[in-house]
Amino acid sequence: MLSKRIIPCLDVKDGRTVKGVNFVDLKDAGDPVELAWQYAQQGADELVFLDITATHERRKTMIEMVKSVARQLNIPFTIGGGITSIADADALLSAGADKISINSAAVKNPALIEDLAKVFGVQFVVVAVDTKLVDHRNMVHLNGGRLLTELETLQWIKQAENLGAGEILLTSMDHDGTKQGFDCKLLDQVCKLINIPVIASGGAGKTEHFTEVFSTTGVDAALAASVFHFGEITIPELKTELHKHHIPVRLCK
């Protein structure tokens, strides 16, 4: 049976992880390699690195970071942030990334999804979608929820699947940061609409939220950042809890 995946998400700027991380046994909380390794040891099933570097040097620093992570990490990982071309994706693949996540670039140029899928296979292409309610309608937003687009979320996700997305990472901006739970209603609709894996993101505050999203929707994975970084939820405890609720997970010894 396929296990439900637990995915910590790390923000990276200039090759260093940002946002405080409260692990007691970390030598360097900013070192993405050490953090990634810690999460892998704890039983994370996969990692997502989101590059928020704005400088011209971003690509070079990112490639170096991806290589260092791939050298150390024995679980898969995804890189997102600023990928706009086949060449960007190719460099990341060669550096050891298992998947890339595209968001704004896909909205601005949907053919990019198709091109990436053709060259690298659908399994390599994660389409990240940030959604927010506008007049009771779920609409796609860019720039972390600041920029409203004309795309209706469900329609865009269906289109992304048709173009060759291998997975959808759906972040509810209404739930993100609230710690009140995932947007199970929307996630359920998405899972019924498409036939590729879905990662739930936005709203995780306690273990019950993970149990809820896996019990009430067809999502394949749940992603969170701060609750893991600050140790509010530890991955072994979370997995034990999910296992108790008969949700298939990979338990690490």
Binding site: M1, L2, S3, R5, D45, E46, V122, Q123, G166, E167, N195, I196, P197, D220, A221, R250
Partner: peptide
């Protein structure tokens, strides 16, 4: 075969 009620690709950890 997606008629088997599975998502494709098969992606993740499987026993």
């Amino acid at each position: 075969d997606k008629k088997l009620g599975i998502k494709i690709p098969h992606m993740g950890w499987n026993n």
